[in-house]
Design a protein around this nucleic acid. Structure first.
Lengths: 249, 249
DNA sequence: CAAATCCCGTACGTTTCCGTACTGAAATAA
DNA sequence: TTATTTCAGTACGGAAACGTACGGGATTTG
């Protein structure tokens, strides 16, 4: 049993910046890249792989390249709900940016993929050395905050179908294909609703020609139609992310 | 018509630190206080007074001393819901800490009071000069983030009564009295539910001896009982705030 | 290949909350 | 004081989603 399970390669000359698909890593300056690169390692991110555990120290920061992370808030009675997703546009470990060393929420790969990671301490050190790096990470954290706020809005005001559509769109934005490899059960957990409710809603989507389904997988067929179902519950965090990332130095 | 409506006094020798009731301002070092003090002014914060407007530049940072600010997310179809409250433990204008100049959400005084404010530019300047000040503000922002995440959880999983109880507790934490001067209508807007639903729920609380009600006001009578109704949907953000503020330098 | 498991479709009674709306009482304005 | 507005109490049918559960087909495991 190796601690290095999943590590594809450590970062060396062979792994050039041209290969970087994470948007944050792609955006930073050469100088900031030089600060991070020695600590980065490519890593496979298998579905259900745990990335952060509530109230536990954060070991690594993950820059997702493919796949989707679910960030799930949990309370004492084990009620849980997804408060945000992270894909190649972002990173895990935002509490580190705020000077905290612990995770508040549960975080795990909802859709498998791969990415790069680095030890938390090295990340914190780098942000302290480079104000420009720190600034970018703060913007990324803010984008995630906005996403969480709109999740709160959707949870409180949107119907199941709209929330489900919103989730599919957010996943689709972060995937390279139209296929979303997930069971109804996991969609239900994320949305905090019954599995059966998801099944019925997806069925309705399928009848309307919005998606196609297979066991353990669904495929977006008519994205515009899904956007219509989500209505205005989808879009603002995405627009804000774009703005924040384009404005950034 | 004066722009200075509401200003009680500018900060001068007469307004010493001993008078500061905002917990953030109370916590900062003498050096950081010296950085902020020249720009701070005491200000009355009347109920419904608007503090931030979505997509508009943030003019001032408000350090609340008494009263409660509601931060409300709004989307294109004008669906809205409260994503967090701010009282004497915090400040408005968190986007500034992240390097943004605009507000994402609507923010206004839900319960009137007073506080201190300073121009956004002066605040940003101060955080750039003082790493310790910046660090504290980041922790404050993180505490607010945690609150928003748990609002998302409550919105998705808790029943109306539990959410209402949670809100009353959060307000109570930020007030000096047991009286909460609010109409059912406003509680309903914040929770994103019907006004009539709030009326019925409050009625039930009253019958159980948890609160007393008057037109436009309710009074907490049995806080422990209300905590029981809120269950585990209340508490985590409060504990995390405490931890973050006690750990801070 | 058989057995066990996982996943999905479906169903039904029940709870929660909505949309709407009418009323009277309390507070405020004229 | 009177008129107006605001606020709270209540009601009713209906929609949405719940908890629960059963069965059958797909997939994985032994």
């Amino acid at each position: 049993m190796s601690l290095e399970v999943g590590v594809i390669s450590t970062n060396d000359a062979a792994s050039s910046r041209a290969d970087v698909r994470n948007r944050l890593l792609a955006k930073i300056s050469e100088a900031d890249w030089a600060l991070l690169a020695p600590h980065l390692e490519m890593i496979a991110l298998k579905e259900r792989q745990v990335v952060e555990v509530p109230n536990k120290p954060i070991a690594h920061v993950y820059f997702v390249e493919t796949g989707v992370v679910s960030v799930v808030a949990v309370n004492a009675e084990d009620h849980r709900i997804e408060v945000g997703v992270i894909g190649r546009e972002g990173m895990t470990g935002t509490p580190l940016i705020f000077g905290d060393d612990r995770a508040q929420h549960s975080a795990y790969m909802q859709i498998g993929g791969n990415g790069r990671r680095m030890p938390a301490a090295a990340f914190v050190d780098a942000t302290k050395r480079s104000p420009s790096l720190c600034a970018l990470m703060l913007r990324s954290a803010q984008a995630f905050m906005i996403q969480t706020a709109h999740t709160a809005l959707a949870n409180g005001r949107a119907k199941l179908e709209a929330r489900l559509a919103r989730w599919l769109l957010m996943a689709h934005d972060r995937l390279d294909s139209d296929a979303v490899p997930l069971t109804h059960e996991f969609l239900a957990v994320m949305l905090g609703v019954r599995r059966a409710g998801v099944t019925v809603a997806l069925h309705s989507f399928e009848r309307r020609g919005l998606i196609a389904t297979r066991r353990g997988q669904l495929t977006l067929v008519n994205r515009a139609g899904i956007e219509q179902v989500a209505g205005s519950f989808y879009g603002i965090p995405e627009a804000e992310l774009k703005r924040l990332m384009s404005e950034a130095v």
